[in-house]
Each structure stands twice: as C-alpha cells, then as structure tokens.
Design a protein around this nucleic acid. Structure first.
Lengths: 185, 185
DNA sequence: CAGCGACGCAACGGTTGCGTCGCGACGTTG
DNA sequence: CAACGTCGCGACGCAACCGTTGCGTCGCTG
C-alpha cells in the first residue's frame, strides 16, 4: 500500500540527515523536507524517530562484506583491510558510525541494534580468517579469533575515524605483518 | 569579578550534560538549570555553546597521564593499558569521548581542539615507550612509535568503547604480548 | 466506475530553546 | 557610605519541531 519510491526517498534522507546533524539533532521535519515528502508520509511508516532510525540502520549495517579466500593469511588480511579502509573513509560512514556509537552509549536500543548487526559479522570474519590460517599452518592452534579482530580493526579504526590521520602509504602492509606476528605469539 | 564557584558549577554541569544528552542536544538552558544558576550567568562567561564547550573540553583533555618507568616494555605497556582501561570505563568519559569524536566529524573547531589535545600527548607516549624499549634492546631500531600507539590503543578502544564488550580477565597480558611480538617484527 | 488508501498541503496547540532585557538584592571595593 | 558589578529571577519575541488533524487529489483495485 505504501509507495516504495517514497519509502526509499525517506530512507536516503534519514541517512543523509544522520550524517549532517547526527541522531541527536535529527528531526522528522528535516527528514521529510530533505526527502521532498510530507511529514505525514513519514509518520505513516514509523511511529517515532527511534523506530525509524533503528529499522533503517539495521538494514544498512546488516549487510555482509564479501571475504575472498586469497590463499594466504597475509593476502586475506590485506584485502580485508583495504575494504575496511575504503568503507571507513566513506564520508557518510565516517560521520554516521561515530555518531551512532556515541548515541549507543546512552540508548540501549541503539546499542543492541548495532551490536546485533556488528558483533555477529565481526566474529564470523575473525573465525573465518583465523580458521583458514590455522588449517594452512600459518597460525598456531590456539590463536584467538576475537583478539585477532581487535588487532586488525582497532588500529585502523583508531587512526582513521578517531585520530582522523591520513594513512601512510605503506601502513596496511606494515599493519598486516605486525598483526601476523602478534597472532603467532 | 566573575564568581569562581559559579564558574566551576557551570563547568561541571556542562560535563554532566554532555554525558547525558551529547553535544548536539546540549542546551544552555539545561546547563544553567543543572548548575543551579541563571542563564545570564552563563552568557556572561561565554558567547556561545561552542566556545563554552571548547574551552572546558580543552581544559579537561589537556591533562597528561603519568607514565611510570617500570624497567621493562611489558611492564610499561601493562601499566599504560590498565590506566587506559580504567579511564575508558569511566561513565562520563565513555559517553563524552565518542560523542565529541562524532561531533568532530562535522565541526572543524572541535576536531582541531581534540587533535591538539590528544595527538601531542599520544605521540609523546608512543615515543617514550618505544624509545625506552629500544634503549634496553627490547625492540629493534626501526620500531615505529606511531604504529605502536595504534596497536596499543586501537584494540582496547575498539573493544571497550565501540564494541562495549567486557574485557576477559587475561585480556591485557595477552594484548601486551601480542603487541610486543608485533613491534618486534 | 466506484471505493479505498496513500499522497501533499496547511494548520493546529504545545513545548523547548534561543539571546536579550530590566529588575532588585547582595557583596566588595574605594 | 556610595558606586559598581555580579547575582537570581522572570519575561520578552522569535524560531523550530513536536505529533495530530482535516482536506482535496491521485492512482490503483475490484
């Protein structure tokens, strides 16, 4: 019954508005304005700003990253890090992700939605990468997939999103060798 | 001329309000209300919400962490990580830091203030830790202090503040050995 | 072709915050 | 004691947004 093109316009507007002003300052009026849509069209779909954002965010964050098997741990890590750096550099992502994380610190529903979307994905990637490497004999049996994820994602996120430093050109390969050394210990 | 106790009450109120609702939703009215102070008292001190927050944040974020010399790299790292985990777990810090980082992504003045306060401190800590370790022969000559900081702070920040997972009891020592292995490569 | 529902539009009363102003009270300074 | 400046208080007009309502239009469905 609800027109699909309008729903999509609203979703896109929410994402843009989220990037522009953040969840705290996001208003239904501004979303409708940006979507070129009447406020009533929004309220017909969602009962509140929270419900609207939760549904849209869950939809976007739930997508899985493709994770090719390059044949070596170092290759897998390099590909994964490159995908990650591109994603984190995306203007929309680099504004929305920190904002939602900040909001998650005070809103349990947002926190739960983000965790549900991210944690499973993250654990799966870690298990996959480390599992393959162990099968190949590149890592010892006891290597911890969750620690691996922290070691891979943490430094990149810290540098790109928190510190907002540009990446030195050889940063990714150096990080890859460092992570492999760390996991082999 | 301006009463010091009132200034302090306002500063404390700003910090609390920042934690409670974030920079985006922070209002002068709420700050004055929380501080038990008239709105005019705030406007006598700062001309705008941005100026007020910047001055207060710079004052808090500029403080330096003590960094004892334990005699070994592993000891230094352990102490530093423990201080860091305690700081990041602090309720006020864990809400305010992500919020300001998110706001920094859209407000250059906030970004600059944070960078100025954090980057220098961070680089100094990295250089100090790595420098000592190289002198002791615990790390090779070429070890990169900035990469070291990413490897130390990134995983902890990721797990504590982004993922909001509790730390497994032996996480810090395992991270320490992993980091040392990574930096030795 | 008749009916239904989503649509845009405009307006509603209510809330919140903005930045400013004038007032009288209080305490310090000269 | 007189002057000054900060203080709290309350109010101002203005703007934005809230969530809801009623209206007429449009397009699909039966």
């Amino acid at each position: 019954m609800l027109r699909g093109d309008i729903t999509e316009a609203i979703q896109a507007a929410v994402v843009e508005e989220l990037a522009a002003v953040g969840y705290g300052r996001l208003s239904i009026e501004a979303v409708a304005r940006r979507a070129g849509v009447a406020k009533t069209a929004v309220y017909r779909r969602w009962g509140s700003k929270l419900a609207m954002v939760l549904e849209i965010v869950a939809g976007v964050a739930g997508r899985k990253l493709p994770l090719p098997d390059t044949g070596t741990l170092s290759g897998d890590l390099t590909v994964f890090l490159q995908i990650l750096t591109i994603a984190l550099r995306h203007p929309l992502a680099s504004q929305i992700i920190p904002d939602l994380l900040a909001e998650a610190a005070r809103n349990p529903e947002i926190a739960q939605t983000l965790q549900q979307a991210l944690r499973a994905n993250q654990h799966e990637i870690g298990s996959l990468l480390v599992g393959r490497a162990i099968e190949r004999g590149e890592l010892p049996e006891g290597a911890d997939p969750d620690l691996a994820v922290d070691l891979i994602v943490g430094p990149i996120y810290w540098r790109l999103t928190v510190n907002r430093d540009p990446l030195p050109p050889d940063y990714v390969p150096r990080l890859v060798t460092a992570v492999i050394a760390a996991l082999s210990a």
